[in-house]
Structures are given as C-alpha cells and as structure tokens.
C-alpha cells in the first residue's frame, strides 16, 4: 500500500492525512459506548457496554497498526477486566434500579468540560495523526534505530517484541513486578475476609 493510493480527484481519500471513514465510524462507536458506560444506571449494563467499548478501542488500535496492543486490550480490557468486574459484583451487590440512565451531574460535567477545554487547547500543537514527519517517527535515534537494528540485535522480527523483551526489558520486568504486587495486594487486602468466608 502506498500513502497516496487513491489520488483521483473527487474521491474520498482512504489513506491520507485526515480522518478516514473507518476511523470516523470507529470513533462514533467508541464514543457512544463510552457515554453509555458512563450513563447506564445498572452496573451490569455498564460493564457489558464497557466490554463493547474495549472491543471498539482494540479495533481502533489495530487499525493504527498496533496489533499487539489491540490483542492485549481485547484480552485484558474486554476479557480480564470484565471478568474482574463481574466477580466483584458477584461478591458484592448489584443494586436494583428502575431508571435506565443516571442523572447527569452538572458540576462534574463542568469539571470535565474544563479538562477538555484545557487539553484541547494543546491539540493544534500536535503533529497530524499519522504524519511521517512527527518527531517520534522521524527520530532516527530511537524509532529508526529499533526498526533498523531490532532483528539483527535481538533476533525478533516483531520490533515490538524486540523492544519489549530486550531494549526495554526492564520495563517488562517492572510490569511483572506490578502483577506480582497486585497479587500481594489482593492477599493483603482480602486475605482474611473474603476468601475464607
């Protein structure tokens, strides 16, 4: 695929700077599910929609050529998280409700609106999405180096794997520690009470 595949005049560009239809549709999907997650009153419904949200997001990641991330997000975001959430309401309670949606908390909307305004103000400073000239892509020292040397130095075709396991193996070590810590944490938090009941 080349960057400028459909260059005929008058046609919607599918692979160029700017939003493409598939991105747009995924955005709509993700946003909708996000809003629904926030607004559903029933926790179970919220969890279910959140799973759908994760799926949509994973699709988006995959479209942005991050298959590993998409995979992980699907497995962890849509899978493990959902199971954890379900386990939690299984062990606790799921309040019965009549109303379908939560009432909107306007002060909170105000706060978040402020957040959006502040952060959105920085948007113009970003390089366009997918712009090859953006510093991350153009940085020959880092990105370029990985792509050029990963295979030779580590023997892994997948540069992500190479970086994950070799160049930034220490992060991965830390990640393992985090998971271990989470295990310890559950032991510490729940140890006596829930699992022995």
């Amino acid at each position: 695929m080349s960057v400028a595949a459909p260059q005929l005049a008058g046609l919607v560009p599918l692979q160029s700077v700017g939003i493409t239809p598939i991105e747009a549709s995924l955005f709509v999907f993700v946003l909708l599910t996000a809003v629904l997650t926030a607004l559903f009153r029933d926790v179970l419904a919220s969890i279910v929609v959140f799973a759908a949200y994760s799926l949509g997001l994973a699709l988006l990641y995959t479209f942005y050529r991050a298959p590993d991330v998409g995979l992980t997000e699907a497995a962890i975001g849509a899978g493990v998280t959902t199971v954890f959430l379900l386990l939690t309401i299984a062990k606790t309670t799921r309040p019965a409700t009549d109303a379908r949606f939560e009432a909107i908390n306007w002060p909170a909307v105000g706060v978040c609106g402020l957040f959006v305004l502040v952060v959105a103000a920085t948007l113009p400073a970003f390089p366009a999405v997918g712009d090859p000239a953006s510093p991350i892509l153009a940085n020959a020292d880092v990105t370029g180096y990985y792509l050029a040397n990963a295979y030779d130095e580590t023997g892994a075709e997948n540069a992500v794997t190479a970086v994950l396991a070799a160049y930034r193996g220490f992060d991965t070590f830390g990640e393992a520690i985090v998971v271990f810590a989470a295990g310890i944490a559950s032991l510490l938090v729940l140890g006596r009470e829930v699992f022995t009941a």
């Binding site: 930034r168 992060d171 830390g174 985090v178 810590a181 310890i184 938090v189």
Partner: peptide, 21 residues
C-alpha cells in the same frame, strides 16, 4: 521517563495495599 512511571505505579500499588492491610 517511562520507566519512572512503572516504578511510580509499583510504589502506588503497594502503598494502597499496605494501607489497606
């Protein structure tokens, strides 16, 4: 910088747990 984040989270995670112990 990112490694710092990882450690920040390790510290955070364990702190939460220790407090709740």
């Amino acid at each position: 910088l990112f490694n710092l984040f990882v450690f920040l989270e390790i510290v955070g995670l364990v702190s939460y747990a220790l407090i709740a112990s």
